[in-house]
Simulated scan of single mutants.
Amino acid sequence: MRIYLQTPVSDERPPRYYHLFLQEDLLEGWTLMREWGFQGSPGRIKRDHFVSYDSAEDALLKHRDNQLGRGYRVMFQQGEQPK
């Protein structure tokens, strides 16, 4: 699952982005990758490991909901539909 969020465009500064995606790892677990920053510049990346897909997906949706509350909008979503 992959979700790309972005703040509305403004004349004052470039929009911010927040990219979330799940990746299966080699140890039969899942990694939640989070990347954020200003559009057009390198961002920060954080990785969190989860034993099951369900727990990783729950964390992804929680981060998505937090960013929606901060004014971000979903620009792109790929994969399973949220619960």
Rank of each mutant, 00 (worst) to 15 (best):
L68S: 00
G37T: 09
L61W: 12
K46L: 14
G69E: 07
E57G: 02
H49W: 13
L68P: 05
L61A: 05
M33I: 14
Q6L: 15
Q39V: 14
R2E: 08
Y72C: 00
E57H: 10
Y18N: 06
R47Q: 06
L5D: 02
E28M: 05
W30N: 00
R16I: 09
Q67D: 01
N66V: 03
R73Y: 01
L32W: 13
Y72M: 00
V74R: 00
H49V: 13
L60T: 05
R16K: 08
Q77H: 15
E35Q: 14
L61F: 11
G37V: 10
D54M: 05
W30A: 00
G29Q: 02
Q6W: 11
L20F: 11
H19V: 14
R34L: 12
V9D: 03
Q67V: 00
D11C: 03
M1T: 09
L60R: 02
Q77L: 10
L22C: 06
T7F: 09
L61I: 04
F76L: 02
E28Y: 08
Q78Y: 01
K83F: 15
R16V: 08
M1N: 04
Y4C: 03
G43P: 03
V51H: 07
F21D: 03
P15Y: 09
D54C: 02
L27A: 15
E80F: 03
H49C: 15
S41P: 04
F21A: 02
S10R: 06
G69N: 05
F50N: 01
Y53K: 02
R13P: 03
P42S: 15
P14Q: 04
D58K: 06
Q6T: 15
T7S: 09
T7V: 13
T7D: 04
D48C: 13
T31R: 11
L5T: 03
H49D: 12
G69R: 04
R13I: 09
P8E: 08
L60N: 00
P8L: 13
K46P: 13
E57Y: 14
L32N: 11
R34A: 10
R44L: 13
L27G: 14
F50Q: 04
R2I: 14
F76Q: 01
M75L: 02
F21C: 09
Q39C: 13
K83I: 09
M33E: 11
R73K: 03
D58A: 04
R2A: 07
D11I: 07
P15C: 13
R34I: 14
P82H: 06
H63T: 03
Y17M: 10
Y4A: 02
Q67E: 02
Q6I: 09
R16Y: 07
D58F: 05
R16W: 07
F50H: 11
I3R: 02
S52V: 12
L27F: 15
M75H: 00
Q39F: 12
W36M: 08
E35L: 14
S55K: 05
S52C: 07
H63D: 10
Y17D: 05
E57A: 08
Y4V: 08
I45N: 11
Q67Y: 00
D58S: 04
L32K: 07
M75W: 00
V74A: 01
G43Q: 08
V9M: 06
D25H: 06
A56R: 02
E57V: 10
Q77V: 11
G71A: 01
